[in-house]
Simulated scan of single mutants.
Amino acid sequence: MNILILGYGKMGKIISQMAEERGHTIVGKIDESNTEELNHLDNSKVDVAIEFSQPAAAVSNLSWAIKNQIPVVCGTTGWLDKKPEIERLTLSNGGAFFYASNYSIGVNIFFKLNRVLAKMMEEHLDYKVSMEEIHHTEKLDAPSGTAITLAEDIIDRVGRAKRWDLDTEVTDSEHSLPIKATRQDPAPGTHIVTYSSEIDDIEIKHTAHSRKGFALGAVLVSEWIKDKKGVLSMDDFLSF
């Protein structure tokens, strides 16, 4: 399979390496220094694009891929206010767009566990829910996209949590789900969801040991999406 890498930072480099180890060909590695190469690329030789760039570049990269009928797998976070726009563009162009805030198989099992626990905790009003995420200092967005996914899934199921806030911005503690965002090195990614009461705490936690799990998941999804259409997610890929 021929793969185009959009965003050649740390994740892009690991994804490229893993894709080649699995027998795929990297036909282009695009970052902010060589975006003009997209104008000369033979789109017919690209089977899938993998987009792991920066929030400011994501919408442009995704739009380009969708308009050029290239299935695109995106893991960039921090741009999701524009996601409905990209979804509409995908459907109007008959394209394929796959987004996940985290491509680790373990994290997506954690997402499922989080949804199940949140549904169970809805009726237990004595428990206050909060979250912490820990990442490396080069991560630009806070909270992480993974933390936002966890928080939104909780809010959908726990009625007393009306919204999430960074813990430094909480103004209405009764209805807020506070998220503490810690930046320290080295830290590929840790996410902790806690339900606290005066009697006890219930906690679920996922800790990544390296970026390889994220990269492998992105490559596996790219292999899966090649001949598919529509707006897709890890729930489709994992049959959740």
Rank of each mutant, 00 (worst) to 15 (best):
I3K: 05
L4R: 08
M11F: 13
I14Q: 11
Q17P: 01
Q17E: 15
E20H: 02
G23M: 01
T25E: 13
T25G: 02
K29N: 05
K29Q: 07
K29P: 05
I30V: 00
T35P: 06
E36M: 03
H40F: 12
N43Q: 12
D47F: 03
V48C: 09
E51F: 09
F52M: 13
F52Q: 12
F52T: 10
N61D: 08
S63I: 10
P71H: 02
C74R: 07
T76N: 09
T77W: 04
G78R: 10
I86L: 14
N93M: 08
N93G: 06
A96W: 06
A100Q: 04
S101H: 03
Y103T: 02
V116A: 09
E122C: 00
H124T: 13
H124A: 12
H124L: 15
I134V: 13
H135P: 01
L140R: 14
D141E: 14
A142P: 03
P143I: 10
E152M: 10
R157E: 13
R157Q: 11
R160E: 10
R163P: 04
W164T: 07
D165M: 14
V170H: 09
S173A: 15
I179M: 05
P186G: 11
I192V: 12
I192M: 02
S197E: 04
E198W: 14
D200A: 14
E203A: 10
H209L: 15
A215M: 07
V219T: 05
E223Y: 06
L232D: 01
S233Y: 08
D235W: 06
D236R: 05
F237M: 10
